[in-house]
């Protein structure tokens, strides 16, 4: 039983205020997104329309704490078929950002900032890689972690620590 009186009417506005979140309120529940969602095809409990609905009703905690929101593969299928231009892939990014702020991001997502701050990339480039590249006549690749650490506001040492964690 959901009591609308206990829901958070501001939640949908909060999501809409995030970059990419503006379309959420336009949804008229036609279900085209759910029809095309490849994740829904493999995960019974995953349904884009359901996430939108819960958001619109103002089930803030339920949505932000749900592990389901991290299952989106960002394939943009829902976004392409939506007749109301909800742009659900982007909406869900907005929701995930809010969830991350609220501390709900899964571990794999949390590591990324550390990796970027450390290497400027997801995969480290060592001499080994550059040797291999050189064998094939490819130019060497440099790591630019410092730039990323500066943008992310993470000190390089903290980045290393994060990576190890």
């Amino acid at each position: 039983m959901i009591s609308l009186n206990d829901c958070d009417p501001g939640f949908k506005f909060e999501v809409a205020a995030e970059p990419g979140g503006a379309g959420i309120k336009a949804c008229f529940a036609c279900a085209a997104c759910s029809a095309r969602c490849p994740v829904a095809g493999h995960r019974e409990e995953y349904d884009p329309r359901r996430i939108i609905r819960l958001t619109l009703l103002g089930r803030r905690e339920e949505v932000l704490s749900s592990p389901l929101i991290w299952l989106c593969s960002a394939c943009y299928s829902c976004q392409e078929v939506c007749p109301q231009q909800v742009r659900f892939t982007e909406v869900l990014t907005a929701i995930k950002n809010l969830a991350a702020k609220a501390g709900y991001a899964p571990p794999s997502a949390k590591q990324i900032a550390g990796l970027l701050a450390g290497h400027g990339r997801l995969l480290a480039v060592t001499e080994f890689e550059n040797e291999k590249r050189a064998e094939l006549g490819l130019p060497a690749v440099e790591e630019r972690g410092a730039d990323y650490a500066a943008i992310l506001g993470i000190a390089p040492e903290a980045a290393e620590a994060g990576e190890e964690a």
Partner: peptide, 10 residues
């Protein structure tokens, strides 16, 4: 025709 059922499943 691919569509979502009442349960939201494709």
């Amino acid at each position: 025709v691919c569509f979502a059922g009442p349960d939201g499943q494709p």
